[in-house]
Design a protein around this nucleic acid. Structure first.
Lengths: 229, 229
DNA sequence: GACAGTTCTTGAACATGTTCAAGTTCTGTC
DNA sequence: GACAGAACTTGAACATGTTCAAGAACTGTC
């Protein structure tokens, strides 16, 4: 992702960067909905039409914002993972850091989720533009899993990252609707559900539950929807 | 819902009804997005502004459509429930009838879901306009549960309807993104996941799993988000 | 049946996302 | 350095959801 590109940025790339920068600043200041494409164009010092030359539609600017938030999450979560060895602690680290990072963007996240749920939108996880972020999110959970002291059966380990990522999206959806002060309900949900998830994963190794586990895993494996690439 | 109102419909009510009827017809013919408020107004024989007098925004017409689809689902599911006694069969009846009913409205459902996920939208389950339908959906699952031959522990039975409704929304979300021919993947998901859900519910009665079950139930009970009313 | 107030209706105006035909600037080739 | 084609830029125009001030029709009261 961040390897130093050999080429200096072309003119077009610099313009595009100016537009993103202007957009993100305006989004932060006024929110996504109150920010018009005309405002973005003016702040970036380009014409309205030119903004559309680089971003086919406003949603793609939302995607750029989402990417930034996502990267902030990864940056926040990685160091925390260094300090945790238990599965429980590591999942908690990933989810709690997510809540911390998105905290300032409650309304924004709702819009994000809205778009992500729409198969026509470039932000959904099955669209090329949105798929990267989804995969990186899964990778974070893969890390959380791999570095933990808990041994997870191989077949399950293969499916868990995407299951955990889906679970985390569920948490976000809950948070979006959570109006409790400080979103304390979501924090409670994270604490308590992570415990249940961690114990479920441990339970899954229990030979008594093996047939059940196999069924779940096969279902997930067979029915994963294709993503681009 | 359908008790014969003592009052004959007032002029305003009839106008409103005309607008809904026109809207639903146009939605079915051209889809929601391609139907403009001007088209609706014209088809209903009222002015544009008048359409807005009765429906604050276009989303509320979407909600009216959603209600109709929901009622078709209930009408489809109830008779099927009469023929099934096992929990598995009854859940299957509710979910499969849902898929049958929404089949013609794939794009429409995506838009529906989009709006439902947005806390600002009148269609979300925590908003008065959307809460009714959500509650009726839960009621359907409550029926499926109550009439089944499977004995469910009381504490779990109290929480299951809303859990199952949430589960069904997950299925719908999957279906929205399912591009397989005939949505066969979603059908497979329903068949196989219902089996897992039904066995989980039975497993939940197992004394060995009691502590786990209690934790799940308490979590759900404590952290249910408040709905209006 | 005149009056007051409420309900209903209208069409023009507005804001904003998006498109597009036309122009300008850049890049590589001879 | 002239030329051709690609990349970039522009601002006007468009479609559509939404608002609003003004007026028409209705309802109940005296």
């Amino acid at each position: 992702m961040a390897e130093s590109d050999p080429q200096p940025p072309s003119k077009g790339e610099r313009t595009k960067e100016r537009i993103v920068a202007a957009a993100l600043e305006l989004f932060r200041a006024h929110g996504y909905e109150a920010t018009t494409m005309r405002m973005v164009a003016e702040a970036a010092g380009v014409s309205l039409g030119n903004a559309y030359y680089y971003f086919e539609n406003k949603d793609l600017l939302l995607a750029a914002f989402y990417r930034e938030v996502h990267e902030a999450h990864v940056a926040e979560a990685r160091p925390l993972l260094g300090k945790q060895r238990t599965l429980h602690g590591r999942l908690l680290a990933v989810l709690q850091s997510k809540l911390v990072v998105i905290e300032p963007y409650h309304r924004f996240s709702a819009l994000m989720f809205r778009s992500a749920a729409d198969p026509e939108s470039p932000l959904n996880p099955f669209h090329p533009a949105g798929a990267d972020i989804a995969r990186e999110g899964e990778a974070l959970f893969a890390d959380a899993l791999a570095g933990s002291s808990t041994k997870v059966p191989k077949d399950l380990a293969a499916e868990l990252p995407s299951l955990l990522w889906t679970y985390s999206m569920g948490i976000v959806l809950y948070w979006i609707h959570d109006r409790s002060p400080g979103h304390q309900k979501t924090h409670a949900l994270v604490e308590r559900s992570v415990e249940l998830v961690a114990s479920s994963i441990k339970l899954a190794s229990n030979p008594l539950l093996r047939p059940f586990r196999r069924k779940v895993i096969e279902l997930v494996r067979d029915l994963r929807l294709p993503s681009p690439g």
